[in-house]
Nucleic acid binder design. Sequence first.
DNA 1: TTGTAAGCGTTATCAT
DNA 2: ATGATAACGCTTACAA
Lengths: 347, 347
Amino acid sequence: MSAKKRVTISDVATAAGVSKTTVSRYINGHPELMGEKTRERIRAVIEMTNYRPSDIASNLKKRTTNLIGLLIADISSPFSSALISGASKYLDKRGYTLLIADSADDLDKEKHALSSLLSKGVSGVLVNTTSYSNDFLIQVRCDGLPVVLCDRQVRDYNFDIVTTDQHECLYYLISHLKRQGYTRPLFLVEPWENNAVRMKRREAFLEIVHALYGYDASEDVYTLVPGEENAAQALQRALNRDSGEIPAVIGCNSITTVRAFHAIRELGLSIPGEIGLCGPEDWDWSSEMNWPFIVDPNVTTVKIPATQIGSRAAALLLEKLEHPEQPPQEVLLPCVFHERASTVRMR
Amino acid sequence: MSAKKRVTISDVATAAGVSKTTVSRYINGHPELMGEKTRERIRAVIEMTNYRPSDIASNLKKRTTNLIGLLIADISSPFSSALISGASKYLDKRGYTLLIADSADDLDKEKHALSSLLSKGVSGVLVNTTSYSNDFLIQVRCDGLPVVLCDRQVRDYNFDIVTTDQHECLYYLISHLKRQGYTRPLFLVEPWENNAVRMKRREAFLEIVHALYGYDASEDVYTLVPGEENAAQALQRALNRDSGEIPAVIGCNSITTVRAFHAIRELGLSIPGEIGLCGPEDWDWSSEMNWPFIVDPNVTTVKIPATQIGSRAAALLLEKLEHPEQPPQEVLLPCVFHERASTVRMR
DNA sequence: TTGTAAGCGTTATCAT
DNA sequence: ATGATAACGCTTACAA
């Protein structure tokens, strides 16, 4: 009742009175290659015995798998769940299976997880890396493993990557703020030195403010180092300095933006009249559950297509599997601007 | 440059001048079984060649894998991401790997996905099923595969399952509402006939209102059938009927609760004065990003420990792997009541 | 149309 | 302390 022996291809062959080869042909989609009655007999036996071919044996023999690794920087983040969802749906449909590994925001664990994926025989990996500096990944890539980066870049090597245009993203936000008469965009960010996305958004902020407003905004970047200054304190500092301005806060990501919201409330300011608020919306569920809709007033955002990053990266990886010699691509997914009440002062 | 041949155990053996057996012993953690210098030579060769044992070959030979399947009803739901996160962290730590498959809320896809997991040789599966009626899963279980259900039950078979006590969950909510002087709890739910969680919560609502308030609350259950009546309409209907009462809405889950929030706003009622609002909080990230904290006023909830359900289910599955003959367990995880402003009328 | 036989990269059994 | 050898369940030339 407990220890069931596995039904193998030999069992099926014997029962059907044919050779393993024939059964193998049947399984692998060449039923034309055999007689009508043979085919029917095999079908019947498989159905009766509940036979399921072992992918393990088959993979060993074929020296290839339909396993795709997905290396996630931090699986508890909602961005990750969108990424997983997008990649999973795309790959499932094409007969591939996702092997997910979490790096828990730790480069060493990332290495270890990648190693383990390799042992499992993945045909390629999607990587949402923990670290901008990542020699191990480069080495593995050089050893021949197809790799596609998701959203986060790695320095010193030209990987295939799917990401969004952070410059465009910030441009939407800042040009909108300008049109709405805000005179002083502020940028709230967590430590960004080893995080490619934060880095790029910060840079884009500086460039675009300079281009549109004509001044150097270095002073308007507030870096929230945990344990030092919180969002409300940073904001207060900004307000003290900028009396006479009409400020608007741009959060670097969803979390920072929501923090900014609470900070503004704490200081008793009114949105959008006394201060504006907007930011990137880093993940996408059913919009009704998403914070920009729950907050009052609804928050202006630029939506980062996290799910689409997952599926597009998966698509790109499958391409690379077929044409390994293609040069690396950088796919920039468009983000979508959503104007909402938190930044609308005039119409 | 492209087609790298894989380094095998034979290569290592040859290079180190020993037999495959010895190398195998080295890999599998029996380095005591060989001489000092042999061990050192093998270590060196492995390091130089970058040798990685093939899990595929090893699994084939050992007739077992450290793969655990996770069958998810709907991967786009935040509850799922918490489940994945919990299970993944627990299993990673113990050397198991998660194989995630999405059923996209479709029983047929669930069957197909389960079949595929089986072919991949999973040692057991965690199942967050799409359907209360699920013969296929029962059959697979009977064939000897260890199965642990996550949160959602299946009828007609006594599976191991990890879930929360829905009765307790509703009891927290309703008894609190009563203490706060609300005279009429309302229950908002989506179609529940084939969903064990919704079913149980609805039943618990009826029982507990009966016990605490002493009347039959059947009329106070509002089922939101898509395309028929929306939350605001249902609420309006309730208010028309119950003039003179002090109503409080209980959402069946996070989504319904947030919908109720918007419906209440639409009708221009004030929370918690004119109407109360509370519900289960079905997933748990960093609380600062979670809707009960973003909504104004903050919403009273009972927190369902989704992440913990994932890790506990994983733990239970590993137990079953070791002791397959143990009788099925039902693990009820405690949920935690969080009183917040949306239901506090008096102190 | 069907079968034979040789592996795929490991580990297990039995020797030495 | 170490090795030879036979599987594990499948695919794939090559035959017939």
